[in-house]
Amino acid sequence: MRLLAAEGVSKKFGGLQAVYNMNIWLDLGEVVSIIGPNGAGKTTLLNLLSGYLKPDKGVIKIFGKDVSKMSAERIARMGVGRTFQQPKVFEKLTVYENILISVLNLCKDIDDPHGRARMYTEMFGLGNVINHEARALSFGQQRLLEIARVLASDPKVIFLDEPTSGVHISLIKRLEEIIKKLKNEGKTILIVEHNMPFVAKVSDRVIVMSNGSKIAEGTYEEVKENAKVIEAYLGGR
């Protein structure tokens, strides 16, 4: 079942073609990673898919509905959760409030929002800082808090922008387990990532972008041997 389909999506900032004629789809329960060198347009694509940017050309459909002109908050209310390249936490709210706010806004008909917020705080190892303001956390903890906040809202589609960046190796392993568990629960996940071992472990499919366009697509094993991919990363042999 196709949950997301984007066709011919392009975005230009002044003279810079950030994303060009991009096609991407996500099926139910799939974990797809987007990789590529810096400046390839990965985060711009994620911003387009989640409504933070509007495409100049092309159509984006989520759950069969055209969301190309839809606001980010409306897309979020459809069940699309996301994190950001730099963790965006509500710094003057506590860790607990950061997660609670997600539950209160996005979980419909929930009996115990406070219990759910506490559960996700514990699940991500943030129980010992539950009443601390989010700004007091380390970068890695803020990253985890952001992911916890997204998952607590029970989204159907999840976009993670560099989830392992700045996170300790032991927590990356925990993140791998969480992603596998989410996949088993039928969640659909799109990850932008530079950490290749992580991508190799969690992804069903990998999309490689360079200069705003897709240059390869397939399993991790397939794309890593692709000549265009090697050229994009190494700048030619």
């Binding site: 908050e73 979020a76 959760g81 950001f84 965006k88 509500f90 003057k92």
Partner: peptide, 24 residues
């Protein structure tokens, strides 16, 4: 309150607030 938490979320980070379905 939920409304007040939403206001504070908007104050702290409007983009993150949008990602939780909040209309700033």
């Amino acid at each position: 309150s939920k409304f007040g938490l939403n206001l504070q979320a908007i104050r702290d980070d409007e983009d993150a607030a949008k990602s939780l379905g909040i209309n700033p």
